[in-house]
């Protein structure tokens, strides 16, 4: 161990360090704004504490290896992985581990090219854009396609690994995706696994949390449920969860979007003038009209089932994204 440069003080006020870094602010906001996700929040606190202590140690001249910051977020769709990545970037920036704190979110399409010689410039371009911030790779396992040995994904992974190793000061990489697929991805890319220090698992939301999320989303848009509508929405969540392609908060947002459409149509078809309050309130009828309440979808020829037209635009239902 190297000798500290100046005689270090005997005690360090970590609380003061914490306040000065302005991380408390971000963590409190994380607690307040994100519903549920207790294990994730605890994990983020752990990481923030580690980085803070590390920074203090470094300043006192205590030998410490620079922490590896690359992370992996696993969890089902709609559990807040992207939102947390944004917050994580802010935390890292406040602590001085990344310079700019912006997030560049990409998927396979942004990294992997279509022909020989296309991948390397594409990947490097993305990496350059992400320098000084966080590179968030959604559904990272698609980078690796074992069934096709000519796939260019491997090339992207190699460039990525090289930068993750050599330019740790310039860039933090966060991989995200389903837990089981991510595990398989790491099995076939041990180099990637060994370079990722923090694995954070995102649990599914329960219905009460989803209800809370819905209320917050509506409040953001200046909408609200009336009492019957709220009860109906709880009912809706129970039905929706049992169906295929349930994507937690994302499904909630899509459902709310459709309910807003129904509400708009109801107001439009109803008598005018409309009360200001009515413009903000989603009623039970708006909720209950959902396709998910129909036990068997009506199959009358020439008559589309209620809501079908609107639901067709639900990204959850587009076939190529069926894994969502």
């Amino acid at each position: 161990m190297t000798q500290p440069l100046a005689a270090p003080p005997d005690t360090i006020d970590l609380a003061a360090e914490y306040r000065e870094a302005g991380v408390a602010d971000v963590l409190d906001r994380l607690d307040a704004e994100l519903v549920g996700l207790a294990p994730v929040k605890r994990r983020v606190r752990e990481i923030a504490a580690l980085l803070l202590v590390d920074r203090v140690r470094q300043r006192l001249g205590l030998n410490t290896t620079p922490p590896s910051l690359h992370m992996c977020f696993t969890g089902n769709p709609g559990t807040g992985k992207t939102t947390l990545a944004l917050r994580m970037a802010e935390i890292l920036q406040r602590l001085g581990y990344v310079r700019k704190g912006h997030v560049v979110a990409v998927t396979r399409d942004d990294l992997v090219g279509q022909y020989i010689g296309h991948t390397a410039p594409k990947t490097k371009d993305v990496l350059k854009r992400a320098m000084g911030g966080v590179l968030f790779i959604d559904e990272a396992y698609y980078l690796f396609r074992p069934e096709n040995e000519k796939d260019y994904g491997q090339e992207a992974i190699e460039i990525l690994l090289q930068v993750m190793e050599n330019q740790r000061d310039d860039l933090v990489v966060i991989l995200a995706g389903y837990a089981d697929r991510m595990d398989r991805f790491f099995e076939s890319n041990p180099g990637m696994k060994s370079r990722i220090a923090h694995h954070v698992e995102f649990p599914d939301y329960n219905n009460a949390e989803l209800g809370q999320i819905a209320e917050r989303m509506l409040a953001d848009w200046n909408y609200r449920f009336d009492a019957a509508g709220r009860a109906a929405f709880d009912d809706y969540l129970r039905h929706r969860r049992a169906k295929a392609h349930f994507a937690n908060a994302r499904s909630v947002r899509n459902a709310l979007d459709r309910m807003r459409l129904r509400q708009a149509l109801r107001l439009f078809d109803g008598e005018s003038p409309v009360a200001t309050d009515d413009l903000q309130i989603l009623t039970e009828a708006d909720v209950r009209a959902s396709r998910h309440f129909c036990p068997t979808p009506p199959t009358l020829i020439g008559q589309s089932p209620p809501d079908e037209e609107i639901d067709a635009y639900d990204p959850d239902r587009v076939p190529e994204r069926s894994d969502y």
Partner: peptide
Amino acid sequence: WGHPMFDLQDAAGVISE
């Protein structure tokens, strides 16, 4: 040398090039 670099936030990308 390569393309002009658009949408960069930090000099590290240019320095590596």
